[in-house]
Design a protein around this nucleic acid. Structure first.
Lengths: 198, 198, 198, 198
DNA sequence: TTGTAAGCGAGACGGTACGTCCGGTCTTCAT
DNA sequence: ATGAAGACCGGACGTACCGTCTCGCTTACAA
């Protein structure tokens, strides 16, 4: 399914996977999405752009959606790390601001929105996207909230699930309807949900 | 563009638009979407299911997205009326509960999500969906909030735009990720944004 | 299967088959075969050359072989008519000379050889080629022989089947191995099989 | 080109050609041809069936046609020896009967027909097939005819070239069109060409 | 005895063509 | 003029093989 999970890592003979081809595909997919939108993102176009044979794509990815999930996992891991350690209101606010910028500005944010969209159209996308990206990320965010509450940085009143929905939902919603996400919105949400910044 | 706007209502010779065909197309689109998802929703399939020629569809709708917008406008107008008159916290709470049910249960709610999704893939969809559905609806909702504030039912502190994003965002977000929308979430949001239910 | 057999000739609405496209396909196939051989005769190449969509070919022909059979039927009907009326040794000799030239010189003769070849590779080709071309032609040739014997122009001693194999076999064989077919060979065969030219 | 001609027999290190693999390839090719026809005879299928790597095939044969020529040379050498010594009408008749059986019954006869067919499609096949099989065989058959004439067993009137075409052509032709080859046809041909059996 | 130069199974790679599906345009006929 | 039917061009789909290549293993001669 993904480049990240070779299920049997026993040594084989023969040529190994061509890392250059893998990267070329990921970048080609990213670029095409950014330039022409999901509608123009065909396997043939990716192959053409990446200078790669179609079969090389089909050999490693079951669908173009999995390619996008791969790029999203790599990119959001790098550009949108979830605060580690014991988070404070301030660090969560910073995380949410980054998240808002990611959604409205970063090409990888476009990938997230597109995948969320495609999950509405296609059950297979929904399942894979949740299993490989949304689920783990949600887990990590919940864990962050719990650490914050346990550590005392965040009020123990808030339910972590509700808090996450309330914080993230409006940001994602505005991104989906193509509206900007002002920093003031993030601040208002944080103040309301996690307690006033006082 | 849509069935609702015959620009020249002058009497003409020859047969007028076949209302039965129009409804057959709308229902066929709805049914196919509900049964097999957006991926199976092709113009050819709609024509087949509706017992109508492809050209009849293209004559009246520029794309399958416009068909869905037509059905959504009709359905959400009926099943999700925006509170008229001078709204109270209670009536807004009721509206939001209906909205949550619409999103998670009603086939027409599926249409809304699908259109929101398709708007991420296709600029033309985004434009039309905003102009014909999202924009007017947002206007009406804003108007409702303003009426509530002016009338005194709602605290004048809340910014209507922020309030709407904060109320609707989490509901839409949970619907998009396939999660249920508990009534308690709606209540928590209303309490937080519009003041305690007191 | 072929352009020649519309099984239900009831009047229909809608556009009829595009004769220009049909001819473009037949000529493109002929030309490509003559220029680059059967190996280069792909459906995609025919479509490209004919300026026609692939689907237009698949709509009317189940395989490239049927295209070639169509061209062969048209061409050999025109350029290689079987002597009508009451044939004489002389008219049969003339027919065989024409046949020899057809095989060694005419592009349509190349089509015949290629189909005979492809029939060795593919059972479906064999069946269709026999049913649509070889069989009817053999029948007509047998009929010609019988008319000659009945009419007295040909010795009643000869078995028509054996005579045909003996006359045609060597010509086809030499064509297949790429050897020229001297007129003297035709004459020798005719003399031997149908009696001296006396 | 073929297994039979290692051009530089200088001593080398390393393992020599694997005879088992060579035979596995030849048999796999034969079997696949017999079972599924030339259309199913792909290098990949041969490799699969023979339990051999593709590269092992490409190392020793430039094309699948050469594999078939190798099998044909081995098989027809064994099962269809050309009469040695001073041939008589009777021994030639026997040879032709064997040839007819070979064409219509023997799997190796199928190989001959398939190669003759493929030579129509592909110039390279034609050249190799003539140089490696048809040419030498024709030479040997001509030599046989000449020995028969010189030795007095065959009438000096007959032109050996014409005689061969007349004798072999009808047999090959009937095999190609999928018709049986009755012994009576062979007899009739021999009688006519080489003089009555009287 | 050990280096080294093949042969070998395995299979990834850039390609081409396959036959199918659908998009959007068009043409024809009947109403 | 409209609607049903459907032919048409275009182009992406996912698959099968092509012929080339690289890998790591295994021989078996030559030093």
């Amino acid at each position: 399914m993904s480049a990240e999970s070779p299920p049997n890592p026993r040594p084989r003979s023969g040529p190994r996977r061509d890392e250059a081809a893998r990267l070329a595909v990921l970048h080609a997919a990213d670029d095409l999405l950014a330039e022409n939108g999901f509608g123009a993102l065909t396997i043939e176009a990716i192959a053409r752009r990446a200078g790669v044979a179609k079969q090389t794509i089909y050999r490693w990815w079951p669908s173009k959606v999995e390619i996008l999930i791969d790029t999203l996992i790599e990119d959001s891991g790098k550009q949108l790390p979830i605060p580690a350690g014991e988070p404070t209101v301030a660090s969560i606010r910073a995380y949410l601001r980054d998240f808002a910028d990611f959604l409205s500005t970063d090409p990888a944010g476009k990938v997230l929105l597109v995948l969320l969209a495609q999950a509405q159209h296609d059950e297979a996308t929904a399942e894979s996207f949740h299993k490989r990206y949304l689920g783990p990320r949600r887990e990590a965010e919940l864990d962050m909230m719990v650490r914050g509450i346990t550590g005392g940085g965040i009020s123990p009143r808030v339910d972590p699930e509700v808090a996450l929905d309330t914080l993230l939902g409006p940001l994602v919603y505005r991104a989906l309807i193509g509206a900007a996400i002002p920093a003031s919105l993030v601040d208002a949400l944080v103040d309301e949900v996690l307690g006033a910044s006082a």
